[in-house]
């Protein structure tokens, strides 16, 4: 979107973006509050506040502070991370299919996290570190393998799908090597789940949101300029390669650390960007809108999986069941519009 010479255009649009962003923020907060107060039974907002402030003898203190809060916080942070990382990849590669969960970044982080936990017996920050290293390694690998022809064409996505399949088989093998694990734990690494979430797990995710989210925010303007093409970007004083490097680092960091905490929650990174783009009037604020959409997807998906279905299901099953039809819809729409995929 090239800046138009009419000074009146941007002010007309800005309120729209702000409105959408504040509505999304309100929705996120509402979903967060809902998961704190409602579960098998519901508590009033005052009761939740009392329980959170640790008032002695508050009703439901254990349920709210020990069970629901860590789960909701982890879901919120991971959702924002997935949403930001996903939309960063999609924008940079100019292709909605090039999201980290389709091209194998999430799969590599998941496999690395399982490797770090099962084989190396690591925990906490170190697991996240291994996951980020693996994510970066795989990003470089996919890049190098698909370099012929350039861009995020069919080749990059197909290669990513291949890498994903291979790494999923590694995860399956590693899970087999750890027979002491129960099925719920294995399920986390296969589909992504918030079961058994603890506040300590949320710490690395919060740190990565500060660090990599900040890096992404600093690069957001350059990324926006990059949409105009490399030549235009360079003419406007933006270094395309450096921008891509920073965005890749930030997006991989976000996705990998969130994956190390919750497992690869299916399709959240893939869905957030396109949903946010449909809500917003233009491309402004897309990054933040996608982050909020990601948070809503994870929190609401987890709530649905826990309480609204006949059986308790991990969040990844719910988002997978939502995301797959959307991917099919994307293909059908391309068929109708006659674009080449």
């Amino acid at each position: 979107m090239i800046a138009l010479p009419f000074a009146t255009l941007p002010p007309l649009r800005r309120p729209g973006v702000r409105l959408v962003l504040s509505l999304l923020a309100a929705l996120t907060f509402g979903a967060f509050a809902l998961t704190l107060s409602c579960g098998r039974g519901c508590l009033s907002p005052e009761q939740v506040l009392l329980a959170l402030t640790g008032a002695p003898g508050a009703e439901g203190a254990f349920v709210v502070a020990e069970l629901r809060l860590p789960r909701s916080v982890l879901g919120l942070l991971a959702g924002v991370s997935f949403g930001l990382g996903g939309v960063a990849f999609q924008t940079m590669l100019r292709n909605p299919l090039a999201s980290p969960d389709i091209i194998g970044i999430s799969a590599s982080a998941g496999a690395a996290a399982v490797f770090a936990i099962v084989i190396l017996s690591l925990d906490g920050w170190l697991v996240s570190l291994v996951a980020v290293a693996a994510g970066l390694g795989v990003a470089v690998l996919i890049w190098a393998l698909s370099a012929r022809g350039g861009g995020a064409g069919a080749r990059l996505i197909l290669i990513g799908i291949g890498v994903s399949a291979m790494l999923d088989s590694v995860t399956a093998y590693l899970l087999l090597e750890a027979p002491a694990w129960d099925r719920a734990e294995a399920m986390r690494w296969l589909t992504g789940s918030l079961n058994g979430a603890q506040l300590t797990q949320a710490l690395p995710v919060a740190g990565s949101l500060l660090l990599f989210g900040g890096l992404l925010a600093c690069t957001a303007r350059n990324l926006e300029v990059l949409r105009l093409g490399d030549d235009t970007a360079e003419a406007l004083g933006v270094n395309p390669d450096r921008t891509r490097l920073r965005v890749t680092l930030a997006a991989v960091g976000l996705v990998a650390i969130a994956t190390a905490a919750t497992g690869p929650i299916a399709f959240v990174a893939f869905l957030s960007g396109p949903i946010a783009a449909r809500l917003l009037p233009g491309s402004k604020g897309l990054l933040w809108a996608a982050g909020l959409v990601g948070a809503v997807l994870v929190i609401v998906g987890d709530f649905i999986g826990q309480f609204l279905l006949p059986a308790r299901l991990p969040v990844g099953v719910v988002t997978g069941a939502v995301g797959a039809p959307f991917l099919l819809y994307l293909i059908i729409r391309v068929n109708k519009n006659g674009g080449a995929l």
């Binding site: 389709i102 996505i157 589909t191 299916a266 399709f267 990844g316 039809p325 991917l327 099919l328 293909i331």
Partner: peptide, 12 residues
């Protein structure tokens, strides 16, 4: 992609 999406939905 159609196969991948179908596989994910079916696995879920």
């Amino acid at each position: 992609l159609a196969g991948t999406a179908t596989s994910v939905a079916v696995s879920a």
